[in-house]
Design a protein around this nucleic acid. Sequence first.
DNA 1: TTGAAAGCGGTACCAA
DNA 2: TTGGTACCGCTTTCAA
Lengths: 342, 342
Amino acid sequence: MSQLPEQSSRTSVPTSADVARAAGVSRATVSYVLNDNTSVRISDATRRRVREAASGLGYVPHAAARSLRAGHSRMVLLPAAHLPAAPLQQRFFTDLQSDLRRLDYTVVQYGSDGLEADEAVRAWAELRPVAVVAPSGVRLTPRGIALLTRSGAKAVITLGPQPVEGAHALVLDQRQVGGSAVCHLLARGRRRIGVVMPREAGLAPFSEPRLAGALDAAEASATGARVRPLPLRYDEASAGELAARWRTLGLDSVFAYDDEYAMLLMRALQDAGVEVPAEAAVVGAGDLMLGRLLRPRLSSVRMELATAQPPAEMIDRLVTNHCGAPERHDLLRATTVARESS
Amino acid sequence: MSQLPEQSSRTSVPTSADVARAAGVSRATVSYVLNDNTSVRISDATRRRVREAASGLGYVPHAAARSLRAGHSRMVLLPAAHLPAAPLQQRFFTDLQSDLRRLDYTVVQYGSDGLEADEAVRAWAELRPVAVVAPSGVRLTPRGIALLTRSGAKAVITLGPQPVEGAHALVLDQRQVGGSAVCHLLARGRRRIGVVMPREAGLAPFSEPRLAGALDAAEASATGARVRPLPLRYDEASAGELAARWRTLGLDSVFAYDDEYAMLLMRALQDAGVEVPAEAAVVGAGDLMLGRLLRPRLSSVRMELATAQPPAEMIDRLVTNHCGAPERHDLLRATTVARESS
DNA sequence: TTGAAAGCGGTACCAA
DNA sequence: TTGGTACCGCTTTCAA
C-alpha cells in the first residue's frame, strides 16, 4: 500500500496514472474499469483492485481532459441574464436542468454580466458546449449564433418573447397575455382599457408584446374598444401620480402588466378614492398568491407552459440528429382567472 | 485564400494549427500572438497575419485544452441550490459574479438537482474549479470539502446561516433577524411574541436561527417576555386556521418570518376580526415594496450585507495566497423599519 | 486479459 | 524573431 517512494501522493491531485500505479496495472485498464467499458473483459480481481485504488486515492476524473480526448462534451450552456428573471422562466430552467441531467448532460449556467454581446458569445464558445439555451435578456445575434455553431454547438435555442434568426426557438409569446386580459375585460363590458407599461429597463421585451396583444384583441373584437398605454415606474410616487389623474383619462379598466404592478396601482387608486372595480377594473398577470390576499382579490392572467415534447428531449434530439431547419415551438398558454378586481 | 485542398475547413472547428497553417507560421507563434505574450518579440507583420487568419477562420481557443495544459483554470463554481433563492442571496450572487469576472475569473453555476450530496460534489470536482462558493441549500459535508480541496480547489466557501467545518464561511447569521424584530416589539411594549415557523421544506436553515435569535433577545431583555413558535404553511387555509385561534393563544404580537408570510397572516387576522396592530402587532422581514402597500403598512426587518472586503476580492486573495485557516465573516446587518403594523 | 502508444488542442521551453 | 517539441490527463486502437 504505502510504499516509500509514493512521490507526490497526498499533496497533488491524483491522476489515472496514480491509480494505475497503486493498483499495479496500466492506465488503460484503469480507464476500462472506471468507465465500465463492456467491449473489453477485465478480471474481477483486477476490477476490484482498481476500484479500491481509485477510491483510496480519492481519484476524480478530469472533465476537461476527458472531453478534450473525446472531441465533444455533453455540456449544455445556459447563459444567465441577470435581469430579474420572470418566475415562469425560473421554473422552466429548474425543470430543464434536472431533465437534462437525467439525460446525462452537464448543465452549466454562465453569467456574462458586463460583457459586450459578442465577447460573451466568444466566452461561451470557448467552453465548446454541445447546446446553448439562451433566455431573453441575453443578446444573441445571428453572428453570435453562427460562431457558436462553428464552435461545435449542435443546437442553439432561444427562450423568450421572440425568436432570433438562425436559432431554434422556444417562444413565450407575451401577446397572448395581453390578449387574454383584454378579452376578459371586454367580456365584462369594459371598452376603454389602459395597459401599464413598466418604465423599468429590461422589461420592454415583455411589456411591448403584451401591449401588442392587447391592441390586437381589442381590434379583433370589433367592439370599438380602445386601448391606451400607461407608463409607470415601480414606486409609490409614480403610481400615486397615475391614480390622481385616473378620472381625467376616461378609462374604465386597466391591464397592469403583472401582479406586482397591479397591486401597486390598485393600492394607489384606492388611496385616491377611485373605486375598484366599479370605476377601474384591474387585471394583473402571474397569478401570484399575493393577489389573492388583496381586497378586492386581484384578477390575474395565469401563464402555463404547454410542451408537446419536454424541452430537454427536444435538445437531446437536436443534439443527436443535428437536423438543420430551425424549429419553433409556442409554449405559453394564458388564461385569465377572474376574481373581484374586474 | 481559398486553396483547393483546404481540408475540412468550414465543416469542423478550427484549431490553432489551422490558424498557423493559414498564416504560414507555427502553432507556437499563434499562441504567442493571440495571448499577447510579452516575453517574446514577434514582428508586427507576423502579428497581423496571425490575427487576420484567426478572425478569418473564426478561431476560438478551446478552454478545456488550455486549462489542461496550464494545470489550473480560473473557474469559480457556484453550485446552484434550486430552492427559492432568497432575494438577498440573489443580489449577492449577481454582484459576486460581475466582480469575479472583473478579476478575470470564469463563473459557472452548476445545478445538481437530484444528485446525492456526495455525487454532486464529485461532479463539481470533475470540473477542477479553483474555488467553490456554496450557498445554503447545497449540502456540503466536511468529506465533500476535503474532496474538492484534493481536486485542486484553493478555496471552498459557504454562504449561509451557519458555517461548515473546514470551509471558509460567509455567514448570514439569521439570528440577528429574529433578534432585531423582537427588540423592536419589546420596545413597543409587547411581551408575548409569536414567531412564525414556515412548514415549507427547505426554510428550516433560515427559520430556526431566526427563532433562536428571537428567544435570545427576549431572554437578554430581562423583561420576562415570552416567545412562542407558530407553525404555518404558505396558504390561506393554514393562515385562516391560525388567525381563528389567535385570541386563544394569548399573544400580543408576531414576527412572521418574512414579508410574504406576514402579509398572508395579517390578511387572515384582519379577516378574522383581529385588529392589527392593537390586538396583534405584526413584523415581517425583507422590507419588500409590497409591505408598504398594505394597510396598515407592514413593519419589516431590513437586511443588508456589510462587507469589509468585497467577497470577490476575498476569493481572489484565498486563491492566490492559499492560506490555511478557515476564515469566517459575518455579513448580515439587520434593522427593523417601524411602520404601522407594530 | 492487459499494456504500449497515439493523439485531442494549447502552451512554453529550448534551439535555431 | 520564429519553429520544433514535450507535455497536461484521458480514451481507445492495436498488439501481445
